[in-house]
Nucleic acid binder design. Structure first.
Length: 774
DNA sequence: CTGGTCATTTTTTTT
DNA sequence: AAATGACCAG
């Protein structure tokens, strides 16, 4: 290893690190696993290690770092830029990308090897659902028992296991899977004829390309001599194959992660990838980082104690040398409005009295649905807030419409987009017309997109419809012509803004909302304008196409269509977490999932309730899912540096139904001595229900409602056997029911009871006014 | 063909 | 509660 930069710069890279951190930073060649607990300085270690590798003379273009979100990638890039001095030769060309965007690049570059069009469109979840729906229709599966969502999920799971439609079909044994296999095959055909790939395809195709095409694999192996993977606990099988195909030749692979923060099992993430890293690489160096530099001691102890309850876990010590600090508060609230206002009050106090900036606070919750009420209260109280929902803007109807136009302009095969916009706004190409053409497309084995290009050839088409289609085609051609006429002459990125502007105007979308005076439509108009400015702000990412020596290649100036494709690609791959802007002077509201990797001075976790955290879908099953929920709770707690508040509402309105909640079992698993419990539901007299509406008011007063106490408390209630499984009970409102299951819990046993009138309900025996009947 | 109303449903989490 | 889909009158 030749040394390029002086030793003192290298020792600077080790400054202030613990011994374990130093060992990780200095590890150069061979497989390395860094087990990084929360707040253990993972990002510091990773970035300094890359800087160290460069300092040892490895050119940056030989290094590949893969992350899960654009934000993580951007942050890493930025921190490395700050660490590596400008006079270091070969510091350019470092690849830091998300798995998905890296795969997109590979696939576009090696499109012919992968057997796909290099102008492929990326389908998002909604497009995917549409395509699945269409596939189900063609397969003759009535959508009753075959919901698009469940079939899409099955297909997604298969793809994550690297099973394509044929492979899936060959191992489908029962009626259910064989039916899905049929839909799967049709779905693939639809994607293929649209030149489209879904998210899972990006990984699957890249993995197969690397596995099956030796020349591609070898070229990329030569290029990327050092590979680093962040959040390795969240990789799925396809990602595993991608990473290890690339690393196979030189085995300079460093993976960083924390099994206790694995929260994407539902998306196919395989925790075994990290647990069995040593099995794949027996020579691997393993460095655990257990010391937490982020949170004060009570918070660390609460997190450590909670995660201890996971049985399937590699034991890892979590500790801190920081002071005890403030104890996390567990607050019981009356309902979700009370909860929101207590959180707002607390944050305001921290802001006014402890001078904590709004941007250093966050509210975390399990499901997005909880954000609505929180948002209301933040808005009404005037506390600045942002909701981290990157996808929300691009999910709006008007934006999806505009993007569909753009996608069709970029990819003339994109039938899903075409269908979306051909009659939006209405231009006389309705369902009857389209059905007719589609029928003929099937008969003549032609593509709908091709028939539409040539309406004269379609039989039985009314002159009016043919005229409307002709006008539509002329409009699209006009946009596409911008590429030839002005593309190279114009500055390409301002060309993009012009194209987007023209599409918004000429498509009639703008006029559609302009003529309306509804506030909602005015908002849509503004959103469209925002899209045009987003296009104007968009800069073509620096091309890092290089020869296999890493020298940048001179490329022709990008055309407007190139810029458009890049723009659409960026738009397709944004995530919620990407939208967390640290410069923003506002409290961040987001899901627990989106919070991973972030930290805040003050954190509030809302909805610490059974069936919410842990989520209802995880409470049944083999326990693996429950452990993932516990890890999610662990992730939430460990986001907090100094102040942590965990709330639960005694009553919550869920899907329009006002229901009493059960405290989250995770609350029982926190160390009593490290938390403070406050029961605002009983104490806070100033906050009241709207009089007679309160369905549980009397009861609450009568029973000292909500006086939860950890571990001991109501332990006697745990042995409640007055309503054994199988007995019949009467409920004052629901009538007669059958006890199906009883769950003994220290905070009050609950029972699942099937009522003939209202179906199955889970009730707390201590609260429900049940009487046993014979 | 279009635009409205009414009924029905709700994958938690996301690249 | 909200969003989608089915259905029906212009």
């Amino acid at each position: 290893m030749n040394t390029i930069i002086p030793n003192e710069s290298r020792t600077e890279l080790l400054e202030g690190l613990t011994d374990a951190q130093k060992r990780a930073v200095e590890h150069l060649d061979g497989p390395l696993l860094v087990l990084a607990g929360p707040g253990s300085g993972k990002t510091t270690v990773v970035t300094r290690r890359i800087a160290t590798i460069i300092a040892h003379g490895v050119p940056a273009w030989q290094i590949l770092a893969l992350t899960f979100t654009n934000k993580a990638a951007g942050e890493m890039r930025e921190r490395i830029d700050r660490l590596v001095p400008g006079n270091v030769p070969g510091r350019r060309g470092l690849t830091v990308a998300t798995f998905h965007s890296f795969c997109v690049r590979i696939l576009r570059h090696y499109a012919s090897f992968a057997g796909i069009s290099e102008r492929f469109t990326i389908y998002d979840a909604a497009d995917q659902r549409d395509a699945v729906k269409q596939a189900l229709g063609e397969a003759g599966l009535s959508s009753g028992n075959w919901t698009p969502a469940s079939v899409a999920g099955a297909i997604s799971n298969a793809k994550n296991q690297l099973l394509d439609a044929a492979a899936y079909a060959s191992q489908a044994s029962d009626f259910y899977t064989r039916s899905i296999a049929r839909a799967f095959a049709i779905y693939e055909r639809i994607l293929k004829s649209n030149d489209a790939l879904d998210f899972d395809d990006l990984l699957l195709r890249a993995a197969r390309l690397l596995r099956e095409r030796a020349e591609v694999r070898e070229e990329l192996q030569r290029r990327f001599q050092y590979i680093l993977i962040d959040e390795y606990q969240d990789t799925n099988h396809a990602q595993f194959v991608i990473a290890h195909s690339l690393a196979a030749a030189h085995t300079n692979i460093c993976v960083v992660g924390d099994p206790d923060q694995s929260i994407y099992g539902w998306r196919g993430a395989d925790i075994r990838n990290i647990l069995e890293f040593e099995t794949h690489y027996p020579s691997a160096t393993i460095i655990p980082l257990g010391r937490n530099f982020r949170s004060t001691a009570h918070i660390v102890r609460a997190a450590a104690e909670l995660i201890q309850h996971n049985a399937r876990r590699k034991h890892k010590k979590l500790h801190t040398e920081l002071a005890d600090g403030e104890k996390p508060q567990v607050v019981i609230c009356q309902d979700e409005h009370h909860e929101a206002s207590l959180i707002v009050d607390r944050f305001r106090a921290l802001h006014d009295e402890a001078s904590i900036a709004w941007k250093d606070m966050a509210v975390l919750y399990r499901v997005n649905a909880l954000s609505r009420v929180l948002e209301e209260h933040f808005r009404d109280s005037g506390v600045p807030y942002i909701i981290a929902r990157g996808t929300a803007f691009y999910d709006r109807k008007e934006i999806k419409d505009a993007l569909a136009y753009l996608r069709y302009v970029a990819n003339p095969s994109d039938e899903v987009s075409l269908k979306r916009i051909i009659n939006t706004p209405a231009r006389g190409i309705g369902k009857t017309t389209l059905d007719g053409i589609e029928k003929q497309a099937v008969l003549g084995r032609a593509r709908l997109v091709d028939l539409l290009r040539n309406p004269a050839a379609v039989e039985g088409l009314s002159a009016r419809a043919a005229g409307a289609i002709g006008k539509f085609n002329a409009m699209v051609d006009g946009w596409r012509a911008m590429n030839e006429s002005g593309g190279i002459l114009l500055e390409a990125s301002s060309g993009l803004a012009e194209l987007v502007g023209r599409v918004v105007r000429e498509s009639g979308l703008e006029a559609l909302y302009r003529k309306s005076r509804l506030e909602e439509d005015q908002e849509r108009l503004e959103n469209l304008e925002e899209l045009v400015s987003a296009a104007a702000d968009f800069t073509m990412p620096e091309s890092d196409v290089t020869d296999d020596q890493g020298r940048p290649l001179d490329l022709p100036e990008p055309t407007v269509l190139d810029v458009l494709s890049a723009f659409l690609e960026k738009v397709a791959l944004v995530s919620d977490a990407d939208m967390v802007d640290p410069a923003n002077g506002a409290v961040t509201l987001m899901t627990l999932h989106a919070a991973k990797g972030l930290e805040f001075d003050a954190v509030a976790m809302a909805g610490l309730e059974q069936n919410l955290l842990p989520h209802a879908r995880a409470t049944q099953g083999d326990g693996g899912e429950l452990e993932e929920e516990r890890r999610l709770c662990f992730v939430g707690i460990t986001r907090a540096k100094r102040h942590l508040m965990m709330t639960r509402a005694a009553v919550r309105t869920h899907r329009g139904l006002r229901e009493r909640t059960i405290p989250s079992q995770f609350l029982d698993e926190l160390p009593r001595e490290s938390i403070v419990l406050s029961d605002q539901a009983a104490v806070d007299e100033t906050y009241a229900y709207g009089g007679d509406d309160d369905p549980f008011g009397d009861e609450r007063e009568a029973r000292g409602y909500g006086s939860w106490s950890p571990r001991t408390g109501r332990a006697a209630a745990g042995k409640d056997d007055s309503f054994p499984v199988g007995c019949r009970v009467r409920h004052p409102k629901f009538g007669i029911g059958l006890v199906e299951a009883v769950t003994p819990r220290p905070a009050g046993s609950s029972a699942r009871i099937k009522f003939s009138s209202v179906g199955t309900k889970t009730l707390i025996l201590g609260y429900a006014k049940l009487t046993r009947v014979e």
